[in-house]
Design a protein around this nucleic acid. Structure first.
Lengths: 131, 131
DNA sequence: CTGAATCCTTGCTGATACTG
DNA sequence: CAGTATCAGCAAGGATTCAG
């Protein structure tokens, strides 16, 4: 992005260093599983590891652990270990995490609203490619 | 950034089939480069291939081609080939793409606003890990 | 139950070369 | 200029196993 933003209410990132930082954060946070976990934690509140594993359909245990660590590191979730047998670990959103989840809200709405348009666009594209 | 999304206008995903579809679309669209290209195309309008290559800092030519194809297939961008020498190909957002870009807007704002909080959270996390 | 460690497969990425 | 094609290196991700 070399040019300044024009007619938008985007925060003016005059500093290219800030610009790069934001882009990096976006890259880190605009991840499929991060988005889904934010959504699950927002809808159901505090969740255990195994609950998240079931809720985020299709995620592997490894990915879940890894994604949760990243989110914890970025200050999006808080990890609570309960000393018990069997062990129990809860994850809940921080206010930072809630803010991000809220920001993603619009994307979910958009996706839900436009699923059919995307599907037909794909069908049209693939049909054109056939020839 | 305060309350669970209960008080939001999320479409209630009663049908798990729809839920799965939406999740799939999110997974497809919640991609670093897709987000960045949407942003670039929103800010600067119609762009040529080479302009996008420069604007999306760090992307490889291969990834750019690939991402643009996916976006075209999903109906997010329109690809226009101008018969000229030298050849010229322009990409511009469809209204669907503009809608998605608009939906992502909140995430950009959030990221810009919270970069420093994330950075300090990371620092704290890494410091704690040292021990 | 949580999650770390291992192996192994897939796929991105970068570089390069080649068309229209 | 805007791609496609190919190859090599590397990292992401899945499945499995082991440990606290």
């Amino acid at each position: 992005m070399q040019k300044p933003a024009i007619d938008h209410d985007y925060p003016e990132n005059l500093d290219p260093r800030v610009e790069a930082l934001v882009t990096q954060v976006i890259g880190r946070v605009a991840d499929k599983w991060t988005m889904i976990l934010l959504e699950v934690l927002t809808e159901h509140g505090e969740q255990r590891f195994s609950q998240l594993l079931r809720a985020a359909d299709g995620i592997s245990q490894k990915m879940l652990t890894q994604t949760l660590r990243q989110m914890e590191r970025d200050g999006l979730v808080i990890r609570t270990v309960h000393a018990a047998v069997p062990p129990r670990v809860d994850y809940r959103l921080t206010d930072l995490g809630e803010g991000l989840s809220y920001a993603f809200c619009g994307v979910w709405v958009w996706a839900a609203k436009n699923v059919d348009r995307i599907e037909s666009a794909r069908a049209a594209f693939d049909a054109a490619r056939e020839r």
